[in-house]
Computed example of a mutant assay.
Amino acid sequence: MNFLTLRWADLDPNFHLRHSVYYDLAAQERLSILDRHGITIQAMQAENFGPVLFREECQFKREIHLTSKIYLETKLLKMRKDGSFWTIQHEFLSDSKKLHALLFVEGSWIDTIKRKLARPVPSVVFKGMESLPKTADFTYA
């Protein structure tokens, strides 16, 4: 779980977290967790691949304010057995584990030279995706 540092600029006129900030925080956390599991920016550049999103959805449950103590927990919800398609779940949780928002992204990997989906995925991707933390209801799609 990653503790979030919120900024004044992250707030909307109602003094709670702006909707687009949830997506930005989740994107940053996704890149961090991929990096921790071997899918680094350097590996992506060296092997000419990168993540591509098809769908992103956030369910807002409770407001988050500037002084809220919020953690972001990121886990793999679904993945094809070859690692080519996946769904990642982000939970925005208070320090008392109350759910404030649930964000899902569905994606794949793109060959950055051919500009087509990467098939098969590079081995570094498969190993990294396999090692990501998984939800209790994780499934291979």
Rank of each mutant, 00 (worst) to 15 (best):
L66H: 06
L11P: 01
T5Y: 10
D10A: 07
L31P: 01
I110T: 12
F138L: 03
K116L: 06
A9N: 05
M1D: 13
A9K: 12
A101M: 09
H37M: 06
G128V: 10
L6Q: 05
G83E: 01
S96W: 03
G38H: 03
F54D: 15
R119G: 07
S96P: 01
S84K: 01
T135N: 10
L132K: 10
K116M: 02
T5G: 04
E56H: 01
K97N: 11
I110R: 07
N14C: 10
H100P: 02
R30G: 06
A26H: 02
P120F: 03
D137S: 05
L132Y: 09
Y23A: 14
L99K: 02
D111R: 02
T5R: 04
T112R: 04
S84D: 07
R80T: 15
D137K: 12
A43P: 04
Q28C: 05
D137R: 11
A27C: 08
H19T: 13
L25G: 03
K127F: 06
W109A: 09
L77T: 13
E47D: 14
H16G: 08
F104Q: 05
A43G: 03
K114N: 14
N48E: 09
I39Y: 04
E91Q: 10
D35C: 14
K69N: 13
E63S: 12
W8F: 14
F104R: 07
L132V: 04
N48A: 00
P122F: 03
I88P: 00
A101G: 15
I39H: 03
V121A: 05
P13D: 06
E91C: 06
S84P: 01
T74W: 09
